[in-house]
Simulated scan of single mutants.
Amino acid sequence: MTIQARHDKGGADLKQEVRQVVKASMCIDDLGPDVKGLLKWENYCKNLGLDKEGTKTLFTMQPYRYTGELHSIRYNHTLRASDVVLQLKPDEDGPGRFRFTINGEDDSKWFKQQRKEFYQKIGINIEPRQNKGNKYSIGN
């Protein structure tokens, strides 16, 4: 078999595999419309710092007690979480049709509050100040 013939056969095999993957993806969409949303949340959980077992537990839609570090990509901040309750909840209006909560509140709200408390502990006020050009101040 010539190099060109092997190349053509490899290309045809690859095209066939792509067709099979697309067909399987369409079946998954039909059989489980939440799968795509869960795949996005799986990536989110990985970015948070959760292991596969923790992520699997969340996908049961049951509360998951967690102690460890959680990383927020939005705030580029890793926070220590002590005995928090994480949960993935169905939500038709949420991203990927789900909502991620920490201690019962939306994760973004929880991270924002934790970040605020962290900066307050080290003496930095991150509240916007009236009529000032800079939004951060040190001390009171």
Results as ranks from 00 to 15, higher is better:
P128N: 06
G68S: 06
R65W: 03
Q20R: 15
Q20P: 04
G49Y: 04
S72H: 01
D83N: 11
S72K: 02
Y136L: 15
K23A: 15
V85E: 07
D93Q: 10
G96A: 06
T78S: 13
N103E: 03
G104M: 08
K121I: 01
Y66V: 06
R129S: 09
D107F: 08
K52E: 15
K135V: 11
K40M: 11
F59P: 07
Y64N: 06
P33L: 08
G123A: 05
K36Y: 05
C45T: 09
N76I: 04
N43W: 07
D93S: 13
R97F: 07
G49I: 10
F111K: 01
K121N: 13
W110E: 03
R129F: 03
L88I: 14
E92V: 14
P128K: 08
N43V: 14
M26Q: 15
T57H: 13
K132H: 06
G49R: 04
F59Q: 14
S137V: 12
R129C: 04
R80E: 06
R6I: 09
I102K: 00
Q114H: 12
V22P: 03
Q130I: 14
T67K: 00
G133E: 07
G54I: 06
N43I: 13
F59K: 13
L70P: 02
V18R: 12
E53C: 03
W41T: 00
F98L: 09
Y136D: 00
V22C: 05
M61H: 13
I73H: 06
V84T: 00
N43E: 14
E117W: 01
L39H: 03
K46W: 06
G54Q: 06
Y119H: 09
F118P: 04
L86K: 03
R19H: 12
R129G: 02
F98D: 00
V21L: 15
L38R: 12
H71Y: 12
L14A: 14
Q130C: 05
Q16H: 13
A12T: 13
Q62H: 10
W110P: 02
L38F: 07
F59I: 09
M26A: 15
D107S: 10
Q113E: 11
D29H: 06
F118I: 05
K121C: 10
D29N: 13
E105H: 04
G49W: 07
K112Q: 07
L58E: 02
Y64T: 07
T78H: 01
I122S: 02
T67Q: 01
V85F: 01
T60A: 05
R80T: 09
T60F: 02
G96H: 04
T67W: 01
P95D: 09
M61C: 14
R6D: 12
S108K: 11
E117F: 04
E42R: 14
H7N: 10
N134R: 11
G133T: 04
Q113F: 00
F118G: 04
T101D: 05
E127K: 08
P90R: 13
I126F: 00
T78M: 02
G37F: 05
G37D: 05
L48C: 05
Q62T: 11
E127V: 06
K109I: 13
E127Y: 01
M26Y: 08
K52G: 01
I102M: 06
V85K: 03
Q130M: 11
S82M: 01
N47R: 09
D107Q: 12
G68L: 10
K135N: 12
F100V: 07
